[in-house]
Write a protein that binds this DNA or RNA. Sequence first.
DNA 1: GCCCACCTTACGTTTACCTTACTTCTGCAT
DNA 2: ATGCAGAAGTAAGGTAAACGTAAGGTGGGC
Lengths: 228, 228
Amino acid sequence: MAYRILIVDDEHELQNMVKEILTQAGYETDAALACAQALERFQAGNPDAVLLDVNLPDGDGFSLFGQLRESRDVPVLFLSARDEDEDRLRGLGLGADDYITKPFLPQELLLRLRSVLRRVYREEPDAARLGDAKIDWGKGIVRRNGVETALTAKEFTLLKKLWEARGNIVTIDALCETLWDGPLVGYENTLMVHIRRLREKIEEDPSHPKYLLTVRGLGYRLVREGMR
Amino acid sequence: MAYRILIVDDEHELQNMVKEILTQAGYETDAALACAQALERFQAGNPDAVLLDVNLPDGDGFSLFGQLRESRDVPVLFLSARDEDEDRLRGLGLGADDYITKPFLPQELLLRLRSVLRRVYREEPDAARLGDAKIDWGKGIVRRNGVETALTAKEFTLLKKLWEARGNIVTIDALCETLWDGPLVGYENTLMVHIRRLREKIEEDPSHPKYLLTVRGLGYRLVREGMR
DNA sequence: GCCCACCTTACGTTTACCTTACTTCTGCAT
DNA sequence: ATGCAGAAGTAAGGTAAACGTAAGGTGGGC
């Protein structure tokens, strides 16, 4: 999932350039031309970072910065045509994450933005990839085509067990044992139902699974990337 | 506890100046004149950040940077006398946290360092936001729609535990353990009651929580905003 | 073609959690 | 000590999501 960046600048030309740069690099962008609009877009779009020009028609970037930070500790990178020491110090002094003076190299903008995002959102969510599905173990959810689905307790432990042995067959007995840790009889059918429900959450076509495969007579197995 | 900063520069004069600036600002400093020494001081001193000159007598700062990062994801700010685009892009491209060109204003160095440290070591402001609720950890108070509500001891530690893991599920066992420190069982119901009371303080509609969510069979989880 | 392993669906059951009211505990001021 | 107030814990009835069951269907392997 791409980061969403809000660009606030009153120069159309520069705004489009920045937008182009960021889009090329795989970010999602949103834009505002003035303070009022910026606040509105900020609330609506909930961006992951803000690129903020100091000069704005209906106020200055510094006070807008204050309003943004009051609502949330969002990363903000100032852009400014003025390379006055005073401005730079003011921006950084307020707590901005960076202060970039125009003109700047597209590459440098990207790198500085990346640097900030890396620090702010560093903690890689403990996630696993399964084709086009992403499993977030911390949240206990799986994302596919942008939609999040919560895993139930049984589905969670079941999927985890399969994931830990991904590429290898896990017997039905072994699965039953991890799900009910006890007499491993009588729950085989229930297991199938859970498998089915899991497939509905991680597979595109649950009836023709591509990832959670059944091995007739033995058990189930999760495919491993680049392996069959 | 003051941050420890390692300065790596072969110019005595500049090194002393930087040292002076940082010490004045309340940082602890350590210094090295060349790569070999830098690595030694890095291992020994375990600094919280490194200020790194690009030009060094026994190698260049870029490769030293690689060695440092290999051992640990320490924040690094490059200092350079050369304001060549190429160098800046290279430094930032490697993953540096900032790139400052000499001569620089002492104040700017401090601000940029502070900015990086703030993100890396998460100096949590003494208050947290949760939707329209603001939590003041210092006072142990929650504000919503202008009304202040005091948190009780149990509610406070419970909320803090959830906050520290915000975005991720915290198991009921883990919560019980922090509230009653011990592998005690039998407090699950009490925990629920505390959860309920917390919700009444932070949620608009406690019966349909938007922030403190329950994950059936697994635990509870506090939503995290502006982040995926 | 037949069997058996597995799939699939609908539906009934259970259990984890919610909610409320009440009781007990704890610390503090009198 | 005594009583009080707020905090913490207990209990019991309610609810819906999660789970389990069963029964008919499907298809691969012999």
